[in-house]
Protein backbone atom coordinates (compact mmCIF):
# COMPACT_ATOMS: atom_id res chain seq x y z
CA UNK A 1 0.00 0.00 0.00
CA UNK A 2 2.71 2.41 0.95
CA UNK A 3 4.63 1.64 -2.21
CA UNK A 4 5.08 4.70 -4.37
CA UNK A 5 3.93 3.00 -7.57
CA UNK A 6 0.38 4.06 -8.31
CA UNK A 7 -2.46 1.71 -8.90
CA UNK A 8 -3.85 3.63 -11.81
CA UNK A 9 -0.87 3.64 -14.15
CA UNK A 10 1.27 0.72 -15.26
CA UNK A 11 1.41 -2.27 -12.99
CA UNK A 12 4.92 -3.35 -12.28
CA UNK A 13 5.71 -7.02 -12.70
CA UNK A 14 7.83 -9.01 -10.30
CA UNK A 15 9.53 -12.29 -10.99
CA UNK A 16 9.31 -14.82 -8.18
CA UNK A 17 11.55 -17.83 -8.23
CA UNK A 18 10.62 -20.92 -6.23
CA UNK A 19 13.04 -23.40 -4.65
CA UNK A 20 12.76 -25.76 -7.60
CA UNK A 21 13.55 -23.02 -10.09
CA UNK A 22 9.99 -22.48 -11.30
CA UNK A 23 9.37 -18.78 -11.86
CA UNK A 24 6.19 -16.75 -11.70
CA UNK A 25 5.58 -13.34 -13.17
CA UNK A 26 3.20 -11.49 -10.90
CA UNK A 27 1.87 -7.98 -10.64
CA UNK A 28 3.45 -6.17 -7.76
CA UNK A 29 0.06 -5.30 -6.28
CA UNK A 30 -0.73 -9.01 -6.11
CA UNK A 31 2.59 -10.22 -4.74
CA UNK A 32 2.77 -7.55 -2.05
CA UNK A 33 -0.31 -9.02 -0.41
CA UNK A 34 2.36 -11.28 1.04
CA UNK A 35 4.10 -9.48 3.88
CA UNK A 36 7.47 -11.05 3.19
CA UNK A 37 7.47 -9.94 -0.44
CA UNK A 38 6.17 -6.52 0.45
CA UNK A 39 9.11 -6.12 2.81
CA UNK A 40 11.58 -7.25 0.18
CA UNK A 41 10.17 -4.84 -2.36
CA UNK A 42 10.26 -1.97 0.10
CA UNK A 43 13.68 -2.73 1.46
CA UNK A 44 15.48 -3.82 -1.65
CA UNK A 45 13.89 -1.36 -3.98
CA UNK A 46 13.57 -2.20 -7.62
CA UNK A 47 14.85 -5.76 -7.58
CA UNK A 48 12.65 -7.54 -10.08
CA UNK A 49 13.67 -11.10 -9.38
CA UNK A 50 12.89 -12.44 -5.95
CA UNK A 51 14.19 -15.85 -4.93
CA UNK A 52 12.16 -17.86 -2.45
CA UNK A 53 14.31 -20.83 -1.46
CA UNK A 54 11.83 -22.18 1.07
CA UNK A 55 8.80 -22.63 -1.16
CA UNK A 56 8.50 -24.95 -4.10
CA UNK A 57 6.75 -24.06 -7.31
CA UNK A 58 3.55 -26.01 -6.76
CA UNK A 59 2.70 -24.31 -3.49
CA UNK A 60 4.01 -20.90 -4.48
CA UNK A 61 1.70 -21.14 -7.46
CA UNK A 62 -1.26 -21.88 -5.24
CA UNK A 63 -0.42 -19.07 -2.85
CA UNK A 64 -0.16 -16.63 -5.75
CA UNK A 65 -3.42 -17.87 -7.21
CA UNK A 66 -5.09 -17.04 -3.91
CA UNK A 67 -3.46 -13.60 -3.81
CA UNK A 68 -4.54 -12.89 -7.37
CA UNK A 69 -8.15 -13.77 -6.69
CA UNK A 70 -8.26 -11.57 -3.66
CA UNK A 71 -6.56 -8.69 -5.42
CA UNK A 72 -9.03 -8.95 -8.31
CA UNK A 73 -12.06 -9.22 -6.12
CA UNK A 74 -10.94 -6.20 -4.19
CA UNK A 75 -10.64 -4.00 -7.26
CA UNK A 76 -13.75 -5.13 -9.09
CA UNK A 77 -16.51 -3.79 -6.92
CA UNK A 78 -16.61 -2.28 -3.51
CA UNK A 79 -19.76 -3.89 -2.16
CA UNK A 80 -20.14 -7.61 -1.91
CA UNK A 81 -16.38 -8.20 -1.98
CA UNK A 82 -16.40 -9.90 1.31
CA UNK A 83 -19.07 -12.27 0.14
CA UNK A 84 -17.19 -13.10 -3.05
CA UNK A 85 -13.95 -13.58 -1.17
CA UNK A 86 -15.62 -15.77 1.41
CA UNK A 87 -17.22 -17.93 -1.21
CA UNK A 88 -13.99 -18.24 -3.09
CA UNK A 89 -11.99 -19.00 0.06
CA UNK A 90 -14.42 -21.78 0.87
CA UNK A 91 -13.89 -23.29 -2.54
CA UNK A 92 -10.15 -22.88 -2.20
CA UNK A 93 -9.83 -24.93 0.98
CA UNK A 94 -12.70 -27.33 0.45
CA UNK A 95 -10.89 -30.16 -1.26
CA UNK A 96 -7.35 -29.62 -0.05
CA UNK A 97 -5.73 -32.87 0.96
CA UNK A 98 -3.78 -32.84 4.19
CA UNK A 99 -0.40 -32.83 2.55
CA UNK A 100 -1.23 -29.83 0.40
CA UNK A 101 -2.84 -28.08 3.33
CA UNK A 102 0.31 -28.53 5.37
CA UNK A 103 2.70 -27.30 2.70
CA UNK A 104 0.45 -24.40 1.77
CA UNK A 105 0.31 -23.37 5.40
CA UNK A 106 4.10 -23.57 5.68
CA UNK A 107 4.40 -21.48 2.50
CA UNK A 108 1.83 -18.92 3.61
CA UNK A 109 3.49 -18.63 6.99
CA UNK A 110 6.93 -18.21 5.44
CA UNK A 111 5.63 -15.56 3.06
CA UNK A 112 3.70 -13.80 5.85
CA UNK A 113 0.41 -14.06 4.02
CA UNK A 114 -1.59 -13.34 7.13
CA UNK A 115 -5.06 -13.67 5.65
CA UNK A 116 -4.17 -16.91 3.92
CA UNK A 117 -2.66 -18.28 7.13
CA UNK A 118 -5.94 -17.42 8.86
CA UNK A 119 -7.91 -19.24 6.20
CA UNK A 120 -5.74 -22.35 6.33
CA UNK A 121 -5.46 -22.54 10.10
CA UNK A 122 -9.25 -22.24 10.32
CA UNK A 123 -9.46 -25.22 7.99
CA UNK A 124 -7.09 -27.18 10.22
CA UNK A 125 -9.04 -26.15 13.31
CA UNK A 126 -12.24 -27.41 11.70
CA UNK A 127 -10.57 -30.81 11.39
CA UNK A 128 -9.82 -30.83 15.12
CA UNK A 129 -13.10 -29.63 16.63
CA UNK A 130 -15.04 -32.20 18.61
CA UNK A 131 -12.35 -34.87 18.33
CA UNK A 132 -10.72 -36.78 21.15
CA UNK A 133 -6.96 -36.77 21.69
CA UNK A 134 -6.44 -40.08 19.94
CA UNK A 135 -8.65 -39.07 17.04
CA UNK A 136 -6.64 -35.90 16.51
CA UNK A 137 -3.37 -37.83 16.56
CA UNK A 138 -4.86 -40.27 14.11
CA UNK A 139 -6.13 -37.53 11.80
CA UNK A 140 -2.82 -35.73 11.61
CA UNK A 141 -0.55 -38.75 12.05
CA UNK A 142 0.98 -37.20 15.13
CA UNK A 143 2.85 -39.46 17.52
CA UNK A 144 2.77 -38.44 21.14
CA UNK A 145 6.21 -37.22 22.13
CA UNK A 146 5.52 -36.86 25.82
CA UNK A 147 7.99 -38.68 28.03
CA UNK A 148 6.63 -41.72 29.82
CA UNK A 149 4.42 -40.53 32.66
CA UNK A 150 4.17 -36.93 31.49
CA UNK A 151 0.88 -37.42 29.71
CA UNK A 152 -0.54 -39.22 32.72
CA UNK A 153 0.60 -36.39 34.93
CA UNK A 154 -1.19 -33.81 32.81
CA UNK A 155 -4.32 -35.92 32.72
CA UNK A 156 -4.21 -36.17 36.48
CA UNK A 157 -3.74 -32.45 36.96
CA UNK A 158 -6.54 -31.75 34.53
CA UNK A 159 -8.73 -34.58 35.71
CA UNK A 160 -11.88 -32.53 35.12
CA UNK A 161 -11.16 -32.72 31.43
CA UNK A 162 -10.17 -36.31 31.04
CA UNK A 163 -12.33 -38.40 33.31
Amino acid sequence: MSSSSTTTTTTRLLMLKASDGVTFEVEEAVATKLGAINNMVEEEGSEDLICLPNVNGKFLGMVLEWCKKHANNNTNSDKGNDEVNKWWDKEFVMDLDQNTLYHLLMAADYLSGTELVDLLTEKVASMIRGKKVEEIRETFKIKSDFLPGQEEEIRKKNSWAFE
Binding site: M106, A125, I136, R137, K143
Partner: peptide, 25 residues
Protein backbone atom coordinates in the same frame (compact mmCIF):
# COMPACT_ATOMS: atom_id res chain seq x y z
CA UNK B 1 4.82 -21.76 16.65
CA UNK B 2 2.63 -18.94 15.38
CA UNK B 3 0.87 -21.28 12.93
CA UNK B 4 0.17 -23.75 15.74
CA UNK B 5 -1.01 -20.86 17.87
CA UNK B 6 -3.30 -19.69 15.09
CA UNK B 7 -4.82 -23.17 14.76
CA UNK B 8 -5.33 -23.86 18.44
CA UNK B 9 -6.63 -20.41 19.30
CA UNK B 10 -9.50 -20.98 16.86
CA UNK B 11 -10.78 -23.91 18.86
CA UNK B 12 -13.27 -23.52 21.65
CA UNK B 13 -11.72 -23.67 25.11
CA UNK B 14 -13.41 -27.00 25.80
CA UNK B 15 -11.78 -28.63 22.78
CA UNK B 16 -8.41 -27.26 23.85
CA UNK B 17 -8.68 -28.43 27.44
CA UNK B 18 -10.25 -31.80 26.72
CA UNK B 19 -8.11 -32.85 23.81
CA UNK B 20 -5.87 -30.54 21.81
CA UNK B 21 -3.48 -29.76 24.65
CA UNK B 22 -2.64 -33.44 25.09
CA UNK B 23 -1.84 -34.23 21.48
CA UNK B 24 1.90 -33.53 21.73
CA UNK B 25 4.41 -31.45 23.62
Amino acid sequence: NNATFSILSRLGSIDVLMSAQLVCK
